[in-house]
Simulated assay, not measured.
Amino acid sequence: MKNYIYLFFVLMLFGCAEQEQSQTFMTYNLRYNNPGDSINCWEARKANVVDLIQKYSPDVFGTQEGLNDQILYLDRALTDYSYLGVGRDDGKQKGEYCAVFYRTEKYNLIKHTTFWLSETPEEISKGWDAALERICTYLLLENKETKQRFYVFNTHFDHVGELARLNSSKLIYGKITEHNPENYPCVLMGDLNLTPETSAIQYLSEVLGETKSLAGENCSGPEGSFNGFKHSEPVTDRIDYIFISKGDGKVNQYRIIDDQVEERYPSDHLPVMVEVDL
């Protein structure tokens, strides 16, 4: 009888160990394809963006500002990934995407959708005092090995509307709870155009776990994530974030990646990357 009890506990421990698998997530504002960016234009830096993503090889990453041609370029170059996303201007290919890329060898896609950050989220629309249409794309993924499921929400908040940014935070958290009756773990990422002390970030930090705080001393990189193509100046403005649902993960590492190529950043934002045990 003792042998059976011992075997039972061994199997239980082994099963728990199998479920606790580290996964890496990255959020990266690509800077839209603007020919007026001169030496920082997309054509001059797109290969560097791909090289950076391949170097750090996140399991899942979300992009902001990418236009259709940029997203298609990443899709062709990053053959280990598939992506979902739509343009915010027409719900198809026009305008900036909040695309989510995931490793096809590791995950199955269960469902996905995009909604607008507005009072009418199911319609193409501009919300509250926002200057532009803004969207959030989310995926439900299943780990092929462990069968664990989790949500990834990727968004880009407005750069002007204060009310829009606060209400966008509340809307997204409402969608997280509305579409997740099974209480799967959830990751929220994106360029929120806000620094940590603002009300919208404080709200999200109350209802979700902010990964930099959860990582404790296991953080690296500069303080900020927006460099504005000022390649030789300190990066201090942190406006890009990754959150996880409370109690659903341990953050092993948090990093703001400040790699340069020939003393230039690949984008005007630095990617944020975390390693999490979901």
Rank of each mutant, 00 (worst) to 15 (best):
Q70T: 13
N143K: 04
G66Q: 09
G62Q: 08
N108C: 02
Y138D: 14
E142N: 06
C98R: 02
E206Y: 14
I71R: 07
K230S: 12
A131M: 01
I244L: 04
H156G: 04
T24W: 07
E206P: 13
S22H: 10
Y138Q: 10
Y56N: 10
P185H: 12
L188V: 06
I110F: 07
E210M: 10
R31P: 15
S22E: 14
T113A: 03
L141A: 06
P271T: 01
S232Q: 11
Q64M: 02
K147A: 04
S267W: 13
G91I: 04
Q253M: 08
P121G: 08
T63C: 12
L192D: 00
D80K: 08
L109T: 02
D258Y: 04
Y56R: 11
L13N: 01
T79C: 01
C219S: 00
D90K: 07
Y173C: 08
L109M: 03
D158A: 03
R149H: 03
V187F: 13
R103W: 02
K92E: 12
R264P: 14
L214P: 07
N154G: 10
Y83N: 11
L194M: 06
R238W: 00
Y81W: 01
L30N: 13
L141Q: 10
D89W: 01
S245N: 05
N154I: 06
R165S: 08
G190E: 01
G249W: 03
F153E: 09
L72T: 12
I124P: 01
C41N: 15
Y151Q: 08
I242G: 02
Y83H: 11
T114Y: 04
T113G: 00
F101G: 02
R76P: 01
C136H: 10
G91F: 01
L163A: 10
Y56E: 13
A17H: 06
D158E: 02
C136Y: 07
D237I: 09
L7P: 00
G91W: 02
S22Q: 14
E233V: 13
I172H: 14
Q70W: 11
H231L: 05
V274R: 02
H269I: 09
K147Y: 08
K144Y: 00
N33H: 13
T155Y: 08
N183G: 13
A130V: 00
D240F: 09
L171P: 12
T211G: 02
N227A: 14
G127A: 04
C16S: 11
K246R: 02
H112Q: 10
I135W: 11
F157A: 01
S220N: 00
D37C: 05
G66H: 15
R103T: 05
F8H: 06
V272I: 10
P185F: 13
L117H: 08
V187N: 08
G15L: 05
Q253E: 08
G36Y: 11
G85T: 05
L188T: 07
P58M: 12
K250F: 12
V272T: 01
V261L: 07
T146M: 05
L132E: 08
N34P: 04
E217Y: 02
N34L: 06
S168L: 03
C16F: 06
F243C: 11
K55L: 15
V207R: 05
C98T: 12
I71H: 05
T155P: 03
L171E: 12
N40C: 12
R76A: 11
L74Q: 14
Q93E: 04
I39V: 15
